[in-house]
Amino acid sequence: MRDRELTTGQEARSRSSTDAAEGVVLPVPTVWPLVLALGVSLMIAGMVTHWVISALGAILAVRSAVGWFFEVLPHEHHVTVPTAVEVIPVVSTRETRAHLPVDERHRKLLPIETFSIGAGVKGGIVGGIAMIVPAAVFSLVRFHSLWYATNLLAAGGFVSWAGQSNEFLSQFHALGLLAAFGIHTLTSLLVGLLYGAMLPMFPRWPILTAGFIAPFLWTGLLHSALAVISPILNERIDWPWFVISQIAFGLVCGFVVNLQVKVRTAQFQALPFSVRAGLHGDLQETEDEGQ
């Protein structure tokens, strides 16, 4: 190593790594990783050639391991590489950044308050309970059994149940009840969370949005998807009753979510203190007045 100073680890540690004037401390070049790799490779190659090759590989591996250890123990060997500090110009071909043109009427509308996750969960639970009522009425009226709708929902988990007879689906099945409970709870919670997240985005006509538009939309989506995924199950579902139960869910869930207290978002912190303190109206109003 010409023009370089060999040092041990203790000396190296005592130096500042950023001390460019005295040089930079780097690990010393070494042949042992190469020799160890060769040794390991020969040990393996001996399995398909001759045991002598493996033996040679083992000797090289042991020797290189010893060499390697002595390079790092008790102190790691380093070299100090001299540096030259020189000022070079840092230039750019551009003067500054160009911002995308923004229309004067451009507005960024971000909610300063939203529903908490808990609001969505509560809405989902209560809506899910409310939905059971029309589903149970449907089962009793059409099949004189409470369990038909339950088992049909369970068919979402047990694929073969979609093809079972009405008698089978009208009977009580503990497994079916368990599966239906799981599916119903999960979907109710997920839709409840969705309501919690989305309702602040639709501030007008929350009853119409949550109680009617959203249930119609996802019923249509489910109807189309189920026709592809499971046509038999699709045919067995009474869709008008299904819509009624969804509306029951939507109305109750939306109502419960709207009852909850909203929490402030990060955007609230960006409002002027006077607005946050309640001395003035919100930012939107202030800007409009300014114009």
Partner: peptide
């Protein structure tokens, strides 16, 4: 036109 010449460190 280059617009800035900020000192930097060049190594050997």
């Amino acid at each position: 036109t280059p617009v800035s010449t900020i000192p930097a460190v060049k190594g050997v």
